[in-house]
């Protein structure tokens, strides 16, 4: 899918837009698994000899629980942080899809569904920034 067609009106009016969204989902999953594989190999090389301790819940290390910490870890080529980046990409995939749907409904001049889709997007953004997980 060429970038140029994104700004073409007829592209948004046809069902092509749903195909585009479908492809975006597939790319998200594909990118995420490649990143997870790279991170996983680095993680195994550095931690593979250790003993897994998941019987008691201590929670993932503090720095892999939020995006700034994950990105700093990725810059250090930390395996755990790279895996967590893959998780973030995976989480972002359906969220981006909602954002694209807002545009798609707007091009169809379907105000009701632009509104509904914005509510869904709002609920998810609320869950990211509300600090509920804190």
């Amino acid at each position: 899918m060429q970038m140029k067609s994104l700004f073409n009106k007829s592209f948004w009016q046809e069902r092509d837009v749903e195909m585009f969204i479908g492809q975006q989902l597939r790319w998200g999953v594909f990118t995420s698994s490649i990143i997870a594989l790279i991170g996983g190999i680095i993680y195994l090389v550095s931690h593979g000899g250790g003993t897994p301790a998941y019987h008691e819940f201590k929670g993932a290390p503090e720095y892999v629980r939020h995006l700034p910490g994950i990105l700093e870890g990725v810059a250090r080529l930390d395996g755990m942080a790279i895996i967590q980046l893959a998780v973030v990409v995976l989480l972002a995939t359906p969220i981006t899809r909602i954002a694209f749907s807002v545009l798609a409904f707007a091009m169809e001049k379907d105000r009701l569904y632009v509104f509904i889709t914005l509510i869904v997007l709002g609920v998810i953004i609320f869950s990211i920034f509300s600090g509920l997980g804190g």
């Binding site: 996983g40 998941y54 895996i83 967590q84 893959a86 509920l132």
Partner: peptide, 21 residues
């Protein structure tokens, strides 16, 4: 809900990586 779980440390990289793949 995964966003909340990620912030709470429920998503551990050592489990997430073999599980996703």
């Amino acid at each position: 809900s995964a966003v909340v779980y990620l912030q709470r440390g429920y998503i551990d990289p050592g489990i997430a990586f073999p599980v996703v793949l």
